[in-house]
Amino acid sequence: MPEARVPEAAPLGLFSLPAAEVLAYPATAATTLTRVAEARVPLEDAPEARIVAFRAADGGIEHLAILVGDPEGLSAAGGAPLTRVHSECFTGDLLGSLRCDCGPQLRGAIARMAQDGAGVLLYLAQEGRGIGLVNKLRAYTLQDQGLDTLDANRALGYGADERGFLVAATMLRQLGIPRIRLLTNNPDKVAGLAACGIEVAGREPHRFAANGVNDHYLETKAARFGHLLR
């Protein structure tokens, strides 16, 4: 029996692209991020704040930098501004969900930067550790059936953490901030940013108490994701 032939893309009016280029897309898009808008936005815990929007060359979704005080000036003077790399969380940041600690981490970071005098919070469009809001909700359903955060993501066909740190590193370089003090409990963020050329002068702990609902979630972050307890 003759081997079936797959029709070429061009005669069908389709565009073909090598698989390697598809797989390289996230990194390629990250390196093309540029500043597209900026405005002063006084915040409840940080009256002297600005928001800078970044967009990749392909016109994709925007990532935001929340600048408290003058972290660029501090960096230019040789300092290392307090920095938080925060993945957006619709349920936690906006709705106050008790399933995670994202909301307290977001607001706590901004307040801490205001107290410190300067800082930058990178608000990245990487919902649910990079799997998106819809899949995060599906993961929640699996967690209610007994899986933890990591296994729920894997059951949906994703890795434990689908985020990349090149987006954050590119934004910091665009802001002129190559050296930071990182506000995190996640050693992977320290290593990831360092691998992308950002000097992490120190790690500042950023931990909040369990609320009775997210206890297992926080335990999983420590036991299976390697988050530090202090």
Rank of each mutant, 00 (worst) to 15 (best):
E8Y: 10
N214F: 01
L43T: 05
G13H: 08
P42M: 07
I51Q: 12
R55N: 11
P178H: 06
G164H: 15
G157A: 05
A139N: 04
T34D: 09
A169I: 03
L98R: 15
R40A: 13
A139S: 11
L182N: 10
V120L: 02
A4V: 15
D45H: 09
E44L: 15
H63K: 10
A39K: 11
P71E: 05
G78M: 10
A80L: 14
L142R: 00
G212E: 14
C100V: 03
G146P: 04
C100N: 06
D45E: 14
R179C: 02
G92F: 02
P7M: 02
T32L: 03
E48M: 03
E21K: 14
H86A: 01
Y25P: 00
G164Y: 13
D45T: 12
N135K: 07
T170P: 05
V190C: 05
V85S: 09
A53L: 13
T220S: 10
A169C: 07
E88P: 00
G159N: 06
L175A: 07
G202T: 05
L172W: 08
E48H: 13
M113K: 08
R224V: 00
V41S: 07
A24S: 13
L183M: 15
R50G: 03
E72Y: 01
E199R: 11
T149G: 00
G60P: 08
L124D: 08
C89N: 05
L193R: 06
M113N: 04
G119E: 04
L137Y: 00
F15A: 14
G69A: 02
C89L: 06
R5Y: 05
L64K: 12
Y25F: 09
L137P: 00
L133D: 05
A10S: 13
Y158V: 05
T220D: 09
L156Y: 05
A223V: 02
G78Y: 11
T141D: 04
A152K: 01
L218H: 03
V68C: 00
F165R: 00
